[in-house]
């Protein structure tokens, strides 16, 4: 009988854009095409030259493949170690009882990244002669790549709405359950952005592994410099750049896949 209409509360419902796979992943298609074109251009350019003996020692399929796999292996191993150290550390440093350690530890991580990585890698090689070359390289790259993941893990966990955590606790979720089911999923986009940055940084710094004899595509660049063969130097550089772009591309796809729904 009420003459006054009940106020409607469902007015102006924001529509969430439907996720069209084509639209969402279409932008990912461009990068491999560009990189492929660059690599094809490099191949055609190198093929157009008559290679001498020294150039042939670096620019052959077998040698390059082994250096690419070295490079990828070192990158992935380093990144895995970075995640293993930085994510648990980031979680710990956002717990109430350890929060006050967050700033000093971020300062240290900052120093790790600010140090010139070439200097660090050589310094480590000289100071710890007992360590193997791979271990030295990995420690140096670890120091260099930890910061973005640590910083983003802390930032990602801190940006989770306090009221969401409070209501979860208020409903009887344990601290561990709040971390696993609420905080971490909501921090995933920020953490993944840090992981992606660390990956790209690591691909670049792994090129320096050649200076302690740990291999990778840095060898190709170094050969080019030592033997004054610009063609070899160019090939090595373009391949490192292409690898960095492809790793970034793959990480971008993983980022999209792992992002929780309902957040955008």
């Amino acid at each position: 009988m009420a003459v006054i209409a009940e106020p409607r509360t469902d007015a102006a419902v924001p529509r969430v854009r439907p996720r069209s796979p084509l639209l969402a992943y279409g932008r990912h298609a461009l990068m491999p095409l560009l990189v492929g074109a660059a690599l094809l251009a490099l191949y055609l350019y190198v093929s157009g030259h008559e290679l001498d003996r020294i150039e042939r020692r670096s620019l052959n399929t077998e040698y390059l493949t082994s250096r690419i796999f070295d490079h990828l292996g070192l990158t992935l191993l380093t990144t895995a170690l970075i995640l293993l150290v930085a994510i648990p550390a980031g979680i710990l440093l956002t717990r109430p009882w350890a929060r006050r350690w967050a700033s000093p530890i971020l300062v240290i991580a900052n120093i790790g990244q600010a140090l010139p990585s070439l200097g660090l890698i050589v310094l480590l090689a000289v100071s710890f002669e007992t360590l193997g070359v791979n271990q030295i390289a990995i420690i140096a790259f670890l120091a260099y790549g930890i910061l973005p993941v640590l910083r983003n893990t802390i930032a990602g966990l801190q940006q989770v709405d306090r009221s969401v955590i409070e209501s979860a606790r208020g409903m009887g979720m344990t601290r561990g359950a709040v971390l696993r089911r609420i905080e971490l999923p909501l921090a995933v986009p920020v953490i993944l952005a840090g992981v992606r940055t660390a990956l790209v940084i690591t691909v670049g710094t792994v090129a320096l592994a050649t200076f302690v004899g740990a291999g990778g595509l840095g060898d190709v660049i170094n050969n080019g410099i030592n033997s004054s063969r610009d063609l070899v130097l160019l090939s090595g550089s373009v391949m490192v750049a292409a690898l960095a772009l492809l790793v970034d591309w793959a990480a971008g796809i993983v980022e999209d896949l792992l992002k929780p729904r309902g957040l955008s």
Partner: peptide, 22 residues
């Protein structure tokens, strides 16, 4: 306290709904 809270409904001004859950 966790078991106690499961017996007590709790709702707040900011709703605190979990944004990543339906």
């Amino acid at each position: 306290p966790d078991l106690l809270r499961r017996r007590i409904g709790y709702s707040i001004q900011q709703t605190g709904l979990f944004p990543h859950r339906t």
